[in-house]
């Protein structure tokens, strides 16, 4: 490899890209989808609409799975029953996001966290955002509670929970 002076490839600089020094084609696609939620997540979304967080229990490994699923991926069998878990939990890990999903900067940073839900098996949780707290005050293992949208604004979506906030003692 060292015998080759340069490797193949023709870099395009930022200016060449912006000024379109080369020939470019632009193209947009707008793909729209209707994803079926499936049996377990449909039940989960229905629960959120009622202000409840639901999990599914597997009676072989006895885990309470959150988010719920129709089958236990470890035992590879159908799960057995619905379990209502709490709308509180503790922070497994968290981060402060300064960017949107297209890499543009956010106006205001957003605190995101994985929250282990009380009543589910240890380590079981989901992704959500935090509110009513400064980033510097957040810590791993902090107790948090869901802040729900008003009943008439809930539509059966993960965003029916506005955010999680620190649980006052």
């Amino acid at each position: 490899m060292e015998s080759k002076k340069t490797l193949p490839g023709t870099p395009i600089t930022g200016a060449e890209w912006e000024n379109e020094v080369y020939s470019f084609r632009k193209h947009s696609v707008q793909l729209r989808y209707a994803w079926d939620a499936g049996s377990a997540v449909s039940g989960f979304l229905e629960g959120l609409k009622e202000g409840r967080i639901l999990g599914r229990r597997c009676n072989r490994c006895m885990r309470v799975l959150v988010p719920p699923r129709a089958f236990c991926e470890r035992c590879f069998r159908s799960t057995d029953e619905w379990v209502e878990v709490k709308d509180t939990g503790k922070i497994n890990t968290y981060s402060v996001s300064y960017v949107n999903n297209d890499a543009s900067r956010r106006d205001k940073p957003l605190i995101v966290a994985v929250i282990e839900i009380d009543g589910a098996s240890p380590g079981m949780g989901f992704l959500h955002v935090l509110g009513e707290v400064e980033p510097s005050k957040v810590h791993v293992d902090m107790k948090v509670k869901a802040v729900w949208k008003p009943r008439d604004e809930r539509v059966g979506a993960i965003t029916d929970i506005k955010y999680f906030k620190p649980l006052e003692v």
Binding site: Y33, W35, A37, V41, F44, L45, P67, T93, Y94, S95, V96, S97, V99, N100, N101, A103, L110, V112, A113, V114, F126, L127, H128, V129, A157, I158, T159
Partner: peptide, 17 residues
Amino acid sequence: PILERPLGVTLLWIFSL
């Protein structure tokens, strides 16, 4: 698409977490 995208998730979130 149902449980994570509505939150505005990015790849950077999960790595920083």
